[in-house]
C-alpha cells in the first residue's frame, strides 16, 4: 500500500517536472513571437502612391506575417524620382535604381537596427525608365542571388505593366519567400521541383511497375540464345569496323550571367540584384 502511494507520488512529481520543462522551453519562445508581432515596422514605402491605404495595410500585414515565419523582411519601395535617398548617381538609370535600393536599405537599417538586416527589396521605379529591381541583402544576398532576383522581377513584370500593383507585390513576396527556402545554386524553376511533375513521374513509375507485373504474372521467357549456344564450336568468323565519318554539332550553352550587375557602388554593403523593365 505504502509502496503504491510512493509510486504514485513519484509519478505525479515526474509529470509536474515535465510540465515545467515544457513551459520553460516554450514560454520564452511564445513571448518572443508575440514581441515580434507587436513591434510595428514599416515595410512598404509607397512614395509613388501606387496603393490605396487599405491595400497598403493589407500588404504590411502580409509582410509582417512572412517576417514572423522566417525572420526576413520583404520590403517594397516605389519612386517616381529616385530622389528620396542620397546616393552617387551613375550614367544608367538601371544602375541608379540599384544604388537607390542600397541607399534605401541603409536608411532602413539605420531606422530599425542591424538585427533586421535580412531583407529583400523590391524597388519600383515609375519614372519614364519603368524598371523593377529586386535585391537581396544580408543572408538573403546568398539565398536570393542575382539570377533568382532576375527571375522574380520577370515574373511580376506583367502585373506591373497591367498596373495591378497589389497583385505584383504579393506575388513578389510569395516568390521571394519560396526561392529563399531552396538551396542556393539550384534553379528554383527546375521541373523536378514542381509538384505536378513529381506526381506525373510517380504515376508513370507505378503504372509501369504494375504493367510489367501483370504482363509477367503468367511467367516469363527465361531461355535465350545463350541457353542453347554451343560455345566450343561457335565463333565469330570475320568482322570489320570501318570508320566512315564524323558529324559534329555545336550548341551555345545557356549563359548564367544575367544583364543585372551586382550593385554596390555607393552603399555600405552590396546586395544581390536583378531587375527588368515593365
Amino acid at each position: 500500500m505504502i509502496k503504491t502511494q510512493k509510486h504514485s507520488i513519484a509519478k505525479k512529481g515526474a509529470s509536474l517536472f515535465l510540465l515545467v520543462m515544457v513551459l520553460v522551453t516554450f514560454l520564452p519562445l511564445s513571448f518572443i513571437v508575440k514581441a515580434a508581432t507587436d513591434e510595428s515596422i514599416e515595410r512598404i514605402y509607397d512614395y509613388a502612391n501606387t496603393l490605396s491605404n487599405s491595400e497598403k495595410e493589407d500588404l504590411e500585414e502580409l509582410a509582417a506575417s512572412y517576417y514572423q515565419d522566417t525572420g526576413n523582411n520583404y520590403l517594397i519601395v516605389t519612386t517616381t524620382t529616385r530622389e528620396e535617398y542620397d546616393y552617387s548617381h551613375s550614367s544608367s538609370p538601371e544602375e541608379d535604381c540599384e544604388f537607390y535600393s542600397e541607399a534605401f536599405y541603409d536608411s532602413f537599417l539605420e531606422k530599425y537596427g542591424n538585427s533586421y538586416n535580412n531583407c529583400t527589396i523590391l524597388t519600383i521605379d515609375l519614372s519614364p525608365n519603368r524598371y523593377a529591381d529586386i535585391s537581396g541583402q544580408g543572408d538573403l544576398k546568398y539565398k536570393l542571388d542575382d539570377s533568382r532576383c532576375k527571375k522574380v522581377s520577370v515574373k511580376i513584370s506583367s502585373s506591373l505593366t497591367a498596373k495591378d500593383y497589389t497583385e505584383a507585390y504579393s506575388k513578389y513576396m510569395q516568390l521571394v519567400n519560396r526561392y529563399q527556402k531552396i538551396k542556393p545554386g539550384i534553379n528554383p524553376d527546375n521541373i523536378f521541383l514542381k509538384i505536378w511533375f513529381q506526381l506525373l513521374i510517380s504515376v508513370i513509375i507505378g503504372g509501369i511497375t504494375i504493367g510489367v507485373m501483370i504482363y509477367h504474372s503468367g511467367g516469363k521467357m527465361t531461355a535465350s540464345g545463350q541457353t542453347y549456344l554451343d560455345r566450343e564450336r561457335s565463333s565469330l568468323v570475320r568482322r570489320h569496323d570501318h570508320y566512315i565519318r564524323t558529324h559534329t554539332t555545336r550548341t551555345k550553352r545557356e549563359s548564367n550571367s544575367d544583364s543585372s550587375s551586382s550593385g554596390g557602388g555607393g552603399s555600405s554593403s552590396g546586395g544581390s540584384h536583378g531587375g527588368s523593365h515593365f
Partner: peptide, 13 residues
Amino acid sequence: TETKYFDVYRDVN
C-alpha cells in the same frame, strides 16, 4: 556533340 559513324560487319558461325 561528336557522332562518329562506322560501317560494321560481322560474320558469325
